[in-house]
């Protein structure tokens, strides 16, 4: 908690994006999370990604469940729409909202407890449905809000603050998503925005379910020695497989041309993939799965863009949902009328 709210100061140096907006236009309420919480850095990363992509803030939808992580939707893009769903149930709400209005930008924010414990089933089906949204799992290996119990992503042997050692095997969100056929799988770290922001930007542009697992240390309950989700442990064990170049201009200056591979997105925008490990091919799902699990066995945490599949076909394609937002349809278009309903009933009888 801070004693003062952040003053909105417009200085001569404030940068503006293509919409003429400043970063301030993408911020939200003051965070009430613990000072130094990784989740706050992710919030700042999302703000940056929105700003850089010049997305209209009033057309953003922020959805979450319950947890410290889920609280953060209040701390960004205050002009956007938002809903805190019941614990673990955000994916269902996101699917419904998306079905009703596909013209908005959907961002789901969740935690390891919210997504991998109580909401695991919800997450799995949202992945299968390929709901068109950016899904950020703020992964700290504990239930932060309820004061630090082990979560479903806590590693075996990782110690609680009081010294207890976790015995149950973890669910790795990345392997889970890969095995369910997710069309965009990435892993970032709250302490490295240089890597994180481009991943979030690509996720926002991806047509389909863009799943980003972000390691996000809980400074209060899980940043001690013996924890595998502490700032020091993550920094020590992190490896990068592939990532994105945020701006085309940087390709020539910062990266060798050979290591950059263009990927054309659904809407025609081109993203530039940059390989760190020459052997890594993010379009090969099975390869990605074995690469991540092999490295994991060696105690390495693989980060970066891990898998991308461009022609996955999202929920709208499969369900043949109407392109016009429901609220823009006339009553006549929305309501089939008695005759139409009767016809429908006949189909089922």
């Amino acid at each position: 908690m801070s004693s003062i709210t952040k003053p909105l100061i417009v200085t001569r140096k404030l940068e503006r994006n293509a919409l003429g907006l400043t970063r301030l236009d993408y911020e939200g309420e003051m965070s009430t999370l613990c000072a130094g919480c990784g989740h706050d850095a992710i919030t700042a990363g999302i703000v940056q990604a929105f700003f850089d992509l010049a997305l209209p803030p009033h057309r953003a939808v922020k959805l979450s469940g319950i947890g410290c992580s889920s609280k953060t939707t209040a701390y960004l893009v205050s002009q956007g729409h938002g809903l805190n769903a019941v614990h673990g149930r955000m994916p269902a709400v996101a699917s419904g909202a998306n079905a009703a209005n596909r013209s908005l930008t959907y961002v789901g924010i969740s935690g390891d407890g919210d997504s991998l414990s109580i909401g695991l089933g919800q997450l799995c089906h949202a992945i299968r449905r390929n709901v068109n949204m950016l899904y950020v799992l703020e992964n700290n290996g504990v239930y932060g809000l309820t004061k630090g119990q082990f979560s479903a992503s806590t590693d075996v042997g990782s110690k609680s603050k009081r010294g207890a050692s976790n015995q149950e095997g973890p669910i790795d969100p990345v392997l889970l998503a890969l095995s369910l056929g997710a069309t965009f799988v990435a892993r970032g770290f709250s302490g490295d925005k240089e890597q994180l922001v481009p991943l979030l930007m690509a996720g926002l542009q991806h047509q389909g379910f863009a799943f980003v697992d972000v390691l996000s240390p809980c400074v209060t309950f899980n940043d001690h020695e013996g924890s595998t989700k502490s700032y020091t442990f993550i920094r020590k064990s992190r490896q990068e497989a592939a990532g994105f170049v945020p701006y085309q201009a940087e390709i020539a200056t910062q990266y060798g041309a050979g290591s950059v591979q263009p990927i054309t997105m659904h809407d025609g925008t081109v993203l530039y993939l940059r390989k760190i490990d020459e052997d890594y091919d993010p379009t090969d799902r099975a390869g990605a799965f074995s690469y991540v699990s092999e490295r994991q066995a060696k105690g390495e945490i693989v980060t970066g863009l891990l898998h991308i599949k461009q022609d996955g076909g999202d929920m709208h394609d499969r369900e043949r949902t109407v392109a016009t937002p429901l609220r823009d349809l006339s009553f006549d278009e929305l309501c089939p009328g008695t005759a139409g309903l009767d016809r429908l009933m006949d189909e089922y009888l």
């Binding site: 003053p7 970063r23 990784g38 706050d40 700042a44 302490g191 925005k193 400074v219």
Partner: peptide
């Protein structure tokens, strides 16, 4: 410093 970025992110004048 543990490099959590909290200060960078909060600073009103960047």
């Amino acid at each position: 410093c543990i490099e959590c970025d909290a200060c960078l992110d909060i600073c009103p004048v960047h």
